[in-house]
């Protein structure tokens, strides 16, 4: 005499009613977020593709369909490739140096000394700056007219060979606070027993750092790498404030060309470049995901 739940009509309707109510509540809770995501994240992706298939006329009065040729031409053109190169260089300048300096500051400040909190606060202080504020701060240092270091040749903003590097230092400095805080927190999360066991094993300080400490903080370092790579891809304010893309086009990163503050590129070109940036973002994300799931030591 087994009575199954489903065979009880009264119960079945009640249960269904509950399910329906829960589903409606779930959708209602997600509705606001989904509305934003669709309107400002996914619809623009469609719009970008659409815009890349149309070319504006000289006066911006009409944009006839031109097919994928504009997209292909843009993504293989020198303007786009130069932007990619500058964005890549910006990563090369900022990511390794940023991580190394973060480790340096954190290792220095991770010890029991009187007054160490003062140093920790100082090292964290750049998190109180926005990119724009950091850019103005570096304006006082490297601006060709009024900067404190305006005569130091390897920091010169007037020289196309050094300008991008000089700009990138403002990012390195601005990121110090964040990298310091994250590395310090991960150093402090290492269980003391691990440190003690390693000390008993007789590692010297350097080998201890390379063999024990670095593997244990590697998740945090990976996270930082992700954050810094993304920040480099998105660098914009520094360039606009410090060089406005110059001299020539020597500091025009990909995003700078897309945002196009001087208004020299047609919409279809900028949309095509945006699709290129999207692809780069996706590649970077995929690479990071692969790295993250393979190489990094995660505690249990």
């Amino acid at each position: 005499m087994s009575i199954t739940v489903e065979s009880s009509p009264d119960g079945a309707t009640k249960r269904t009613g509950q399910r329906v109510r829960e589903a409606l509540l779930g959708w209602a809770f997600l509705l606001p977020a989904m509305a934003i995501f669709v309107t400002f994240f996914y619809y623009p992706l469609y719009r970008l593709i659409d815009m890349s298939l149309h070319r504006e006329n000289r006066f911006g009065t009409a944009a006839p369909y031109v097919g994928p040729s504009q997209l292909v031409d843009t993504l293989s053109g020198s303007d786009f490739l130069e932007g990619v190169k500058h964005s890549g260089l910006y990563m090369v300048y900022t990511v390794p140096l940023g991580i190394l300096l973060g480790i340096l500051l954190a290792v220095a400040a991770n010890r029991r000394l009187k007054g160490i909190r003062v140093f920790q606060t100082i090292f964290s202080s750049t998190v109180a700056t926005s990119v724009a504020v950091a850019s103005v701060i570096f304006f006082t240092l490297v601006n060709p007219e009024v900067g404190y270091f305006k005569d130091v040749s390897w920091l010169s903003l007037s020289n196309p060979d050094t300008a991008l590097f000089s700009v990138s230092l403002s990012s390195v400095w601005q990121n110090l606070g964040l990298t310091f805080i994250i590395v310090l927190a991960s150093l402090q999360a290492i269980p003391t027993e691990v440190e003690e066991a390693a000390a008993l094993d007789g590692y010297g300080p350097v080998r201890h750092f390379l063999r024990i400490t670095v593997p244990l903080i590697s998740p945090a370092l990976m996270f930082l790498a992700v954050v810094l790579v993304v920040a480099a891809l998105q660098a914009y304010a520094q360039i606009e404030v410090l060089t406005n893309g110059g001299p020539g086009t020597s500091t025009q990163t990909l995003l700078f060309k897309i945002a196009d503050p001087q208004g020299i590129r047609p919409l279809g070109i900028r949309a095509s470049m945006s699709i290129g940036l999207f692809a780069l973002t996706a590649i970077v994300a995929a690479g990071q995901y692969a790295l993250l799931s393979k190489r990094v030591h995660y505690g249990d």
């Binding site: 009575i3 199954t4 739940v5 009880s8 009264d10 119960g11 079945a12 009640k14």
Partner: peptide, 14 residues
């Protein structure tokens, strides 16, 4: 999943 559960005289499955 299956069967009948009552509290007092009331079947409480649902």
């Amino acid at each position: 999943s299956d069967g009948m559960l009552s509290i007092g005289n009331r079947v409480v499955n649902n």
